[in-house]
Design a binder for these strands. Structure first.
Lengths: 330, 330
DNA sequence: TATAAAATGCAAATAATTTGCATAACTAAA
DNA sequence: TTTAGTTATGCAAATTATTTGCATTTTATA
C-alpha cells in the first residue's frame, strides 16, 4: 500500500488539508509544523517510486551500502559493482553510512527507494546487524563483509585459502622458517588469513617462528621489520596480512641494505595497484572483486525476485583467491 | 506539477485504466506494453518524491555524478564529498555514468530524484556538456572536472599553479636544467600543469631541455626514464604530471643504479598515498580534496536555494594547491 | 482455424487531494 | 495588556486521480 496524505496526517496529528498545503507549498510554513510534516513525508516514503510491480519487467534499483574510506580498495569495489550491475540491467547507487547518526533510520529510508541492498559494513558489530535484520524484516540484503557468523547471506573472499596458498608457496620453494605479520585479529578476515597460513605450515610439520601483530598500516610493516631485524632471523618466509604492511616491511628492509627475497621472502595480500609497481614486485594474494560483485548481485536479484527463501538461516559463500607470483619470494 | 496516470497514458498511448492496472500489478503483463508503461513511469518520475517545497526546511538530496575508475583518487573524492555533505545536512548519493547508454536519459532521471548534481566527468566533450545544459535547463549543477571553457559553474584545482610551484622549487634549489613528463595534453589539466611549469622556467631565463609525452601510467614513467637515460642528461629537475609517472621514472632509475635526487630530481603531482611510502619519499603537489568538496557543495546549495543566478554565464573557481617537500628533490 | 486466456478501453465507482470558508493562534505595535 | 493584522488550521465541499465492472479486442496455443 502506498503512502498518502492521510497516513502522514495520522502520523503527525495535523489534518489532511494542512499536510496537503505544506507538501504543495501553499503555506509558507510555521517552520515547526512544516518541517515536521516534510520530515515525516520523506521518512515514510511519501510518493516514493517503489511500485508493487513484478520485478521481472523492471529495472531494479540496488543500493550499495558502504562506509567511504580513502583507500584504493573502495574505488575497485565501486567500479566492479558498477560494471556488473550494468550487465545485469540494474541501477546501482552508492550510499555511505560512515557518518550516519541513525543507521536504522537511514537504512529504512533507503529501503523504501531501492529493491535491495548490497552491504559492505565490515566494522559493524553483530548486535547492529541483528537490529538491521529485525527492522528490515524480509527485505533483500546481501552482505559482502567478512564475518564469523553471517546475519545476512554473505559473499566474501576465502581468506583462509589465501593464507594457505601463501604457506604452500613458501613450503614448495623449500623454506623452513616462517613468519607472519598479522592484521588486527578482531577483524575476522585477518584471523582467517593467519589461521590458513598457520594450519598449512603446521600440517607440513613446521612451525611459525615469528609472529608480529600489525594493524594493516604501512608503518606496522616497517615496525615489523625492525622487530625481526633485532632478532637476527634470516632466510625466512614472511606472510603479511595485507600489501601495505608487506610494502612497509620491504621498504624498511631495503633501507637497512637487506636483500629481498634472499634475506627475507615476502608474500602480501590484496594485490593493490602498487604491489606490481613496487620494487621489487610483490608476490601477493589476488582477490577477484569482479567475481565477488557478480555473485553477490546475482544472488540479490534472485532474492528480490523471491527465488530465494528469505526465512532460512543466512549462509556464507566463499570466493576463491589466487596467488600472484612475482619477485619477493622464491 | 506532479506526474499522474493520465500523463503516462498520454505518453504511451494506453488508456488510464491499463496504466493503472500495470502499475498496480493487476495485469500479469503482456511484457510489451507492461514494460513500456513501467519504463515510462520510471523515466517520467511517476510518484517520485520531489516536492515543490522550499529547500530551506528540507534535507537536500545531492547526486555525485561520476565515472567509477579503480583509482585511489575516486576513493578520496567520494570520502570527502560524503563527509562534507553530512556537515551541510545533505544526503549524497553516488552514481556512475561510465557505462551509460544514454547520458541524457540517465541524467534526466536522476534530476527528478535529486535537488542538484555535482558532476565529475573529465572525459566528456564540450558538445555533450552543452547537450546536458540544454536538457536540464536551470537545474542546479556544479562541475568539478577541469575544463577549458566551463559550461557549468566549475570548481577545480589550480593546475597551472601546481606546475609553477614545481618550477619554483627547482629554481630555488639552484637547478639549471629542467625536464617534464607531460600528461596527455588533450586533458586540459595536463596542459595547465605543463604550462605553469614551462612559463615559470622561461620567465626565470631558463628553458626546458627535455620533454616526454606520457599518458599518466606507471609504464610511461619508466619509458620516460629510458628516454632521458639514452640522452645522458643528468643533474636535471624533472616535473612529472602525476605521481604514477614520477614513481615509474624513479623506479626505472633505481633499477639502473642511478641516485635520486642526485642524478635526477623529481617532483610529482597528486600526493597519492604511495608517494610518501615510496622509497625515496616523493616530493609532490598536494590537492586538498576536502576544500574542493566544501566549496563545490556550498555553491550547489546556494544554487538550489536560488541564491545564485543560473542564467549568467558559467564561472570557474580555482582551488589552490601546495608543494609537499619530501626526498626526491633538493 | 478454433478456443481459451489475457489485455484493453469506456464509463461508473471509489479514493485521494485541494480549496473555500470560518476560526484559532500567533506577531508586532501601541 | 490590548488590538489589528497576519498566518495557520480544520471541516466539508469541490475537484482531481485512480480503480474496477463489464463488454470487446487481441494474442497465444493446440
Amino acid at each position: 500500500m502506498s503512502i498518502g496524505l492521510k497516513d502522514i496526517s495520522n502520523a503527525t496529528g495535523y489534518s489532511v488539508s494542512t499536510v496537503s498545503r505544506v507538501l504543495s507549498n501553499k503555506i509558507s510554513g510555521n517552520s515547526q509544523s512544516a518541517a515536521q510534516i516534510i520530515k515525516a513525508a520523506r521518512e515514510m516514503g511519501y510518493n516514493s517510486y517503489r511500485i508493487s510491480v513484478n520485478p521481472e519487467n523492471r529495472v531494479l534499483d540496488i543500493a550499495l551500502i558502504t562506509q567511504h574510506f580513502s583507500e584504493e580498495f573502495y574505488a575497485y569495489l565501486y567500479s566492479s559493482f558498477d560494471q556488473v550491475s550494468l550487465n545485469k540491467n540494474c541501477t546501482l547507487t552508492i550510499h555511505s553510512v560512515r557518518h550516519s547518526k541513525s543507521l536504522q533510520d537511514d537504512l529504512s529510508f533507503l529501503a523504501k527507494n531501492h529493491d535491495g541492498f548490497i552491504m559492505f559494513l565490515p566494522t559493524l558489530d553483530p548486535y547492529s546487524y541483528n537490529k538491521i535484520k529485525e527492522t528490515l524484516e524480509n527485505y533483500p540484503i546481501v552482505s559482502i563483509a567478512p564475518s564469523f557468523e553471517p546475519i545476512f547471506d554473505t559473499f566474501t573472499f576465502d581468506s583462509y585459502q589465501g593464507g594457505a596458498l601463501s604457506a604452500k608457496a613458501f613450503i614448495e620453494k623449500g623454506y623452513e622458517k616462517f613468519g607472519i605479520i598479522r592484521g588486527p585479529l578482531e577483524k575476522w578476515e585477518a584471523a582467517l588469513r593467519r589461521n590458513g597460513f598457520r594450519d598449512t605450515i603446521e600440517n607440513a610439520g613446521y612451525k611459525i617462528s615469528w609472529d608480529y601483530k600489525g594493524d594493516y598500516s604501512f608503518e606496522a610493516g616497517e615496525n615489523a621489520f625492525h622487530s625481526i631485524f633485532k632478532r637476527k632471523i634470516k632466510n625466512i618466509g614472511v606472510f603479511a596480512s595485507n600489501d601495505q604492511m608487506a610494502v612497509g616491511f620491504i621498504h624498511a628492509a631495503l633501507e637497512n641494505k637487506k636483500e629481498i627475497p634472499t634475506d627475507y621472502a615476502v608474500i602480501g595480500y590484496d594485490n593493490i595497484l602498487f604491489s606490481k609497481i613496487f620494487f621489487p614486485k610483490l608476490t601477493t594474494i589476488d582477490t577477484d572483486v569482479d567475481q565477488l560483485a557478480e555473485e553477490a548481485i546475482d544472488h540479490l536479484i534472485r532474492m528480490i525476485k523471491k527465488e530465494v527463501n528469505l526465512n532460512r538461516s543466512a549462509r556464507k559463500t566463499l570466493i576463491p583467491v589466487e596467488l600472484i607470483k612475482r619477485d619477493t619470494h622464491k
